[in-house]
């Protein structure tokens, strides 16, 4: 009984071992092919549990997710003969692991191939556009074109190029200096403009204020002269109306008043004794 049990247990373990060797799982993020004695077999295995023949068959798994190939920045000449430092990345995925395995073997091999394909595509495409187009207007369309071209060429390697995208497109350092110089000059011009505009406006405002002041004062002068004139005229009229009642008496009384004011102290006066005042002295 004990011996039988032991044999049973051992047999069971062997069975489990063999079964485990003939079973394999593929993760949701992966895909697999089976290689029999070094020769890849047809058929791609998706996620789940699968069987294989133990010992003579091997499993190769590959990524199913979208991968990134981030190329190092390269200088590319644009149509208007300007250098542009382009840093791009390529999103790609393995669509046919069998072909992928037979052509580029693994991800490193694929990246080397992608580098050639994408770089060539970019160089050709960017060489047909001016720098300003690449930076501003046609960037998106341009990247789509490179993606399409690269995708077509990468198909042979069981690779799908999802997206080629220019991450950075900057000027080389020596060109940047020129740009900075130009930007500086532009700003200096702006600063000057603001300052002279300020002067212009300020002068306009002060001159207008001066003008308004002059007009206000002139207006006041006009009104005041008019008023004074009215006063003078009215008083003349009043005097005339009163005095014309007896011009002779007015002359007499006014003269008396004037004598009083005119003959002050120290006035030398020669008076004839015939004057009416001395009438009774004679």
């Amino acid at each position: 009984m004990k011996l039988k049990g032991k044999i049973g247990v051992i047999a069971g373990l062997i069975v489990i071992f063999v079964v485990s060797l003939s079973l394999f799982t593929v993760d949701q993020t992966q895909q697999a092919i089976v290689i029999q004695l070094g020769k890849p077999l047809e058929g791609i295995y998706g996620p789940g549990l699968h069987f294989k023949v133990p010992f003579i068959q091997q499993v190769m798994t590959f990524e199913k997710r979208i991968l990134v190939y981030d190329a190092s920045p390269t200088e590319i000449l644009t149509k208007d003969k300007k250098n542009l430092v382009v840093d791009n990345y390529t999103k790609w995925a393995i669509t046919n692991p069998l072909r992928f395995y037979t052509t580029v073997r693994n991800e490193n091999g694929a990246q080397a191939r992608l580098d050639d394909i994408v770089y060539a595509g970019l160089r050709v495409e960017l060489g047909q556009h001016n720098l300003s187009d690449i930076v501003s207007e046609t960037r998106d369309a341009l990247m789509m074109k490179v993606t399409e071209k690269s995708a077509k060429r990468a198909e042979d390697y069981g690779i799908r190029v999802v997206d080629v995208r220019i991450k950075r497109a900057d000027l080389p350092e020596q060109n940047e200096k020129h740009v900075f110089g130009r930007m500086k000059a532009e700003r200096e011009r702006q600063a000057k403009q603001y300052r002279s505009e300020g002067e212009e406006e300020s002068k306009k405002i002060t001159a207008k204020a001066d003008m308004e002041r002059t007009i206000i004062l002139a207006e006041a002068y006009k009104i005041s002269e008019k008023l004074k004139g009215e006063g003078d005229a009215k008083s003349i009229k009043i005097y005339a109306e009163a005095y014309k009642k007896d011009i002779e008496f007015y002359g007499f009384i006014r003269s008396l008043e004037a004598y009083g004011k005119a003959l002050k102290k120290d006035t030398k006066l020669v008076i004839n004794l015939n004057a009416p005042f001395f009438k009774y002295m004679n």
Binding site: L263, K265, T267, K268, L269, V270, I271, N272, L273, F278
Partner: peptide
């Protein structure tokens, strides 16, 4: 108040 010179005609 006036400095006077009175003359007889």
């Amino acid at each position: 108040g006036v400095d006077k010179v009175i003359v007889d005609d």
